[in-house]
Design a protein around this nucleic acid. Structure first.
Length: 324
DNA sequence: GCTATTTGACCCTA
DNA sequence: TAGGGTCAAATAGC
């Protein structure tokens, strides 16, 4: 178990090919890492809060997680402020560029032919802008659909040299609230060995754009995910809403953590004067044992995301109780 | 009937 | 020109 989770952690570090500390005066890598950390916290929250729903400590856990997110947001604001001072506003590329939609031109028998298209070429053309990698945050996760937001699938593509298709999701509230957040989910070819010895499927999730809707975690209107919905074997084409098809949660073998205390301390100082600090301790102590494996993985993922930063962040993980 | 997903076509970018 | 992101009609599921 010890080794397997370490392997998983390594794969997380390789996500975007950089695990090195923030270099020079370029804050973009730091921003990306913080954003990735936010994604992971969000994901963790989607797992933890439903599990503690009937527990009075759920509120406390929610506060802690919100505190972490708040710190991250402040750190991002600070860095973005620095960025905006250093460089003129280049590109909020993807999201702010409008797309000209093609007016529907299909005749009633279905797809219109190319010839017909040409005849009607007075219509405005659809414009697709390739997304800029700068604006994305990627992470590796066994639970690509549980990040606290609601997504609607709008496409799937086979990608060159990849066994598995890539699925495209956009925020469910895209129309209602003009939320332009999107994400792609693709199953990785390699698997990681989870703490119970199983080899679970990993997915690469890439987030584009920030959520502007208030239905997500930032608005405290959590998507309630039943622990039974959490799966590590779900195919990428399956979405959160198709939970009835989701396989049961990963089975726990004899090497399960089984209620051992996993102590995690997160102490981060992000503002200039170091005022904003937050401690969350023994978060996992609160969890029912069924969620330990998954939550531990996500916590390690968070640690990996924050580790490259030069922020005052300290993760203490009680290895003796964690690794059996 | 409504909503979400699937899937082939379209079209932009590298 | 190939690859990949998005659109939108068709389809499935409730």
């Amino acid at each position: 178990m010890k080794q397997s989770s370490k392997r998983y952690l390594a794969s997380v570090c390789d996500t975007d090919g950089q695990c090195s500390p923030t270099h020079g005066c370029d804050h973009k890598p730091a921003l990306r890492e913080i954003a990735r950390g936010q994604c992971l916290v969000t994901q963790l929250r989607a797992i933890v809060l439903p599990a503690l729903q009937a527990d009075e400590r759920g509120d406390l856990a929610a506060q802690m997680l919100e505190g972490i997110l708040d710190c991250s947001r402040k750190a991002m604001s600070e860095l973005q402020l620095l960025l905006s001072c250093e460089a003129p506003d280049e590109d909020h590329a993807v999201d702010d560029k409008s797309r000209v939609r093609k007016i529907s031109c299909s005749d009633h028998d279905g797809r219109s032919s190319k010839a017909a298209e040409n005849k009607k070429n007075a219509k405005p053309l659809r414009q697709h802008k390739r997304r800029r990698f700068d604006d994305s945050v990627s992470l590796e996760t066994p639970v690509p659909h549980y990040d606290g937001h609601q997504w609607r699938k709008y496409g799937q593509k086979h990608i060159n040299n990849s066994k598995h298709p890539r699925s495209y999701y956009r925020c469910t509230y895209r129309q209602e609230e003009k939320c332009k957040a999107t994400k792609t989910v693709q199953q990785r070819e390699d698997r990681y060995a989870s703490s119970n010895g199983d080899h679970s499927v990993m997915y690469t999730v890439v987030y584009y754009g920030q959520h502007t809707c208030c239905k997500g975690p930032a608005g405290h209107d959590h998507v309630v995910v039943e622990p039974s919905q959490i799966s590590t074997t779900e195919s990428p084409s399956q979405s959160q809403s198709s939970s009835s098809d989701a396989p049961p949660p990963p089975a726990h073998g004899d090497n399960n953590i089984h209620g051992n205390n996993v102590s995690v301390t997160c102490s981060l100082v992000v503002t200039e004067d170091g005022q904003a600090s937050m401690d969350s301790n023994k978060l996992l102590d609160m969890l029912p044992e069924a969620d330990d494996d998954l939550t531990t993985d996500v916590l390690f993922d968070m640690a990996a995301a924050y580790a490259p930063l030069d922020l005052d962040i300290n993760w203490e993980i009680d290895a003796d109780t964690l690794w059996l």
